[in-house]
Structures are given as structure tokens and as C-alpha cells.
């Protein structure tokens, strides 16, 4: 009996080792494009010409500095923040407000208002992106930080409202009743009682929205035609247009584009995953 159990254990162990071996091999395959990017970005320019995709055959920061200065990726980097941070703040603040109202405050017109949010959740950006271009042009918002921030925010608002509404709905009803008995105003109940209890939701929504807006390609492609506030995504695409020659700086530019994403992802994996899991609902 004992012998048999021991034998089973070694078999199980062998199997587990095999699994880990397979998993490590697969994860290397999955991560390989990232390894390739880092390797090519950190080569010396002459090595890039000879052997652009050989892994880690030389080392230099030159491609990075070239991309940052000559390739304007420094500007793009700044622009990405200018387009991502305000739009993310806007989504998080307005969604938290809206989510709270839909979850806990009966108000006239709530049914219709909620219907509008549902429509926003169901209709893909594709459907209205072309008319929106001419609308923005008419409003003088094309090529402007304000316009693109507002568009980016509006594409994330419906989802954000849903997301935050779920968090507020989960809070017990006794909470606001008790606060009301204590003489708290509706504002105070929202800001002092409820808001502190949904910080995890706000965190996940912030990270998720930041990544989505940072990665957004179509919105800046369409609505920043002149390129004054061009972010990393469309900047990288533009740089790719002059393809073939400058693989080194292109790799460096790619690295600059994805580095904040990777850092955020590794540092806040839980929030990112939570955000994307519920983001799935959006489709």
C-alpha cells in the first residue's frame, strides 16, 4: 500500500515536471515578441544593419535616444499622457457619479437615462466614427487635445458607469439609512460613506481605462490628422511607414510605446485583470 502510494507520487511528480516544462516553453513562445523587441532596441546601429533579429548580440542605448529625439517619440510619449490622463480621469469621475446615481438614487428620467447608457455599451465605435469626424470638424475640435479627450472619455463612459453601478449596488442598504438618521446630507452620504467603500472598483476602472486609452489607435488616427498632438500609437504607425531602413529606432519606439503598459500590468496585475475580466462584458 505504502509502496504503491509512493510510486504514484513519483509518477505524479514526473507529470507535474513535464507540465512545468511545457508551460515554460509555451510562456517563452508567448513572450518571445517582447524579447525580440528589447533585443533589437538595445543593439548597436551597425549590428542592427547586419543582424537585426539575432538575440542580444550587442548593447547600446543609441536606438533609444535616436527614437526619443530624432524619431519624436519623446513628443509622442508626452502626447500619450496628455490624451490618456485627462480622458481617464473624466471616465472615472463621471462613471462613479453616474454609477452611484443609477444604483442608489431614484430620480425622474432614470429609465431613459439608463437606456442611453445601454445604447452606448452596445453600439461599436465603428458605427459612428465617420460622422463623428465631420461633427468634430464642425465644432472645431479636430486636432485638439480637448476634442480627442472628450471622444476617448465618451467611448469609455457607458462601460465605466455599468462597472461602478455594480459596486454601488452591492453595498448594503442599511449604510445610507444609518447615515441619514445621523443627519448626513445626500452629498455627504455619497462622498463620505459610499465612495470610500468602492475604491477597489475605482482602482480597477482607472487602470483598465488608462490602458485602453493609451492603446487606442483609431481615435487619434481619425481625429488628429495634422499630428500636432500625435500619441505613441499613431506615431509608431507613422514611423513604420518609412519601414525597412530604421529597424533599430523602430524597435526602440515600440519599446517606448509598450513600456508603460508592461510596467502598469506587472505592478497592478490584479486590477488590470479585474478590469479586463469585467471589460469583457463590453464586447
Amino acid at each position: 500500500m505504502k509502496y504503491q502510494k509512493a510510486r504514484l507520487d513519483t509518477r505524479g511528480k514526473l507529470r507535474l515536471t513535464g507540465k512545468h516544462f511545457l508551460l515554460i516553453a509555451l510562456s517563452i513562445v508567448m513572450v518571445f515578441p517582447l524579447i525580440l523587441t528589447i533585443s533589437t532596441a538595445l543593439k548597436t546601429p551597425s549590428d542592427v544593419k547586419l543582424n537585426p533579429f539575432g538575440l542580444f548580440s550587442s548593447f547600446s542605448w543609441e536606438n533609444i535616444t535616436t527614437a526619443w529625439t530624432v524619431g519624436s517619440f519623446g513628443n509622442y510619449f508626452l502626447n500619450s499622457f496628455l490624451l490618456t490622463v485627462p480622458s481617464t480621469l473624466l471616465v472615472v469621475v463621471l462613471s462613479t457619479m453616474g454609477g452611484y446615481a443609477f444604483a442608489r438614487l431614484p430620480f425622474p428620467g432614470r429609465g431613459i437615462a439608463f437606456y442611453v447608457v445601454v445604447v452606448g455599451l452596445l453600439v461599436p465605435f465603428f458605427t459612428y466614427m465617420i460622422p463623428l469626424y465631420f461633427q468634430l470638424r464642425g465644432m472645431g475640435l479636430l486636432d485638439s487635445l480637448l476634442g480627442v479627450n472628450l471622444v476617448l472619455a465618451s467611448t469609455g463612459l457607458s462601460f465605466g458607469t455599468f462597472f461602478m453601478r455594480a459596486f454601488f449596488s452591492d453595498l448594503p442598504a442599511e449604510l445610507d439609512q444609518a447615515a441619514r438618521v445621523d443627519g448626513a446630507s445626500e452629498w455627504q452620504i455619497f462622498l463620505r460613506v459610499m465612495l470610500p467603500l468602492v475604491t477597489s472598483g475605482i482602482g480597477a476602472l482607472s487602470v483598465f481605462t488608462f490602458l485602453t486609452n493609451w492603446n487606442n489607435f483609431l481615435v487619434p488616427l481619425l481625429y488628429i490628422p495634422s499630428g500636432e498632438y500625435r500619441p505613441l500609437t499613431t506615431g509608431l504607425y507613422l514611423f513604420l511607414g518609412g519601414r525597412s531602413i530604421d529597424i533599430g529606432p523602430l524597435a526602440a519606439g515600440t519599446l517606448i510605446t509598450i513600456l508603460p503598459v508592461i510596467v502598469l500590468f506587472v505592478a497592478m496585475q490584479k486590477q488590470v485583470t479585474q478590469g479586463f475580466l469585467s471589460g469583457a462584458v463590453k464586447g
Binding site: L105, P108, V116, P131, Q135, L150, T155
Partner: peptide, 22 residues
């Protein structure tokens, strides 16, 4: 009152940048 106040900015943005272009 608070409910309407809280959803107004959300509604305005959605109306202008989503419903109208649709």
C-alpha cells in the same frame, strides 16, 4: 436632485459624442 445632477455630465457627453453622431 442629486441623482439628476450626478448623471448630467455623463448624459451630455454621451449625447454629443455618441448619440448625435449615431
Amino acid at each position: 436632485r442629486l441623482g439628476m445632477l450626478l448623471v448630467t455630465p455623463l448624459m451630455v457627453l454621451t449625447a454629443v459624442f455618441l448619440v448625435f453622431p449615431m
